[in-house]
Amino acid sequence: MTDTAVIHLAMQAMVVAAKLCAPILLTSLLVGFGISLFQAATQIQEFTLSFVPKILAVGIAIVVSGHWMLITLVDFTHQLFRSLPGLISGG
């Protein structure tokens, strides 16, 4: 297994990880930003006001994008298993 193959494999894994995290992180970021604007405008500084909507939005994002996330992860795993003989032999 060459260093180029290891770097390529690590890069693919990081791209897949970024794709899988994106829906959850972006949803949390957008909801958090909206709640922060609301809190700044109304000067209501309640912890649950920012926590509960984020949890609900992230839960909805997981339900909506969970199927796509699972397919992406399974496809990457299948690709990895198919490439294992070539990686082990060094070809």
Rank of each mutant, 00 (worst) to 15 (best):
L20E: 01
T42S: 13
Q39S: 09
F33P: 05
A57Q: 00
G34N: 01
K54A: 11
Q43S: 08
P23R: 03
G34V: 01
S36F: 15
I35R: 00
F51V: 13
L56H: 08
A41K: 15
V15M: 10
I24A: 13
K19F: 12
K19S: 10
Q45A: 15
T27D: 06
S28T: 11
L25R: 08
M14V: 08
F51R: 00
S36H: 13
P23K: 02
I35D: 03
A13S: 09
I24G: 01
T48K: 09
P53E: 05
V31I: 14
Q45K: 14
Q39P: 05
A57V: 05
A40P: 02
P53K: 00
L25D: 03
L56E: 07
L26T: 09
I24R: 00
E46C: 02
L49Y: 06
T42D: 05
G34Y: 03
A13K: 02
L25E: 05
P53W: 07
L37W: 09
S36M: 14
A13M: 10
I44R: 12
I24L: 15
L30G: 02
V15N: 00
C21V: 12
V15Y: 09
I55H: 01
F33S: 12
E46R: 04
A13Q: 07
F51T: 13
Q45T: 14
V15C: 00
C21I: 13
C21K: 02
T42F: 10
